[in-house]
Amino acid sequence: MSESILAANPATREGRPWYRNRKLDQYICFWSVPFFYNLFGLVFVPLSWMMPPRSPTSDIADVIAFMQSPNLLIACTILTLAIGLSAVGNACYMVQMRRMSVSPVFLFAFMAGAIVGAVVGALFPMFCFGLGAFRSGYDPEILQMMYDFGYLSFIGSLGCFVLNWGMLGLAILLDKNNILPKWLGYYVIWQLMTEFFVATVWIAHDGPFAWDGLLAFWFNMVIYVPWQIIVYVCIFRAIRNQPENELRNARFKPGATYA
């Protein structure tokens, strides 16, 4: 699919090789996103087995065994090195928001949310798990606390994502340049609703509303994963469809004198 999209790119059709593409900066950053999400999936699923979420009511022996599994440390290391890519992925949204007719306030509010989200939604929870594995011999209560802290922080980090998706959705709906399709704006706001549903994980220990519950986790995942893919496909199309003369580097002609 990616090849066909690239082939349809007007710049490559002009005969310019991909590495001379004017939008190469955007394409590099864009393609870091699937790379990052795969890494993210690798870190959280087969490497740490933190996802799919373990039960909040797990037996303490299971909690200890999980919290001390050495793979958690590998996961932590990879995440530490890669967390910066979350910034790159969010910057791809921001570039499109910047092109919209709306005020940059949306952009900067989004940026603040992106910073907080990376810390509370990824780095901190992973460290909670890694700390248990780093030093064997922590008391079971301490491990249980880090287990809870990790899961609640990872699954229950609401505010920054409400902010981010709210800003993105509103910006799309108010935009008059039609950078991203209007239905995507509604789709983003719709997805935002699922953030509210997650609030229950802070209360429920079992049943559909716990952090491994049918509604609070699985239903949200069913909505979230296709949504995330569709949003990035739309971002890709927005990059591809950006007219060449609108690019910031379009004014630099080789040989021209410009300070």
């Binding site: 955007q26 979350s86 910034a87 910057a91 921001m94 992106a114 910073i115 910031r248």
Partner: peptide, 18 residues
């Protein structure tokens, strides 16, 4: 810098924040 977009600069700022 003469890039097509500010994407690197935005990434940079978010990284500094994190």
């Amino acid at each position: 810098v003469g890039n097509s977009s500010p994407v690197f600069a935005y990434s940079y700022i978010i990284c500094v924040g994190i």
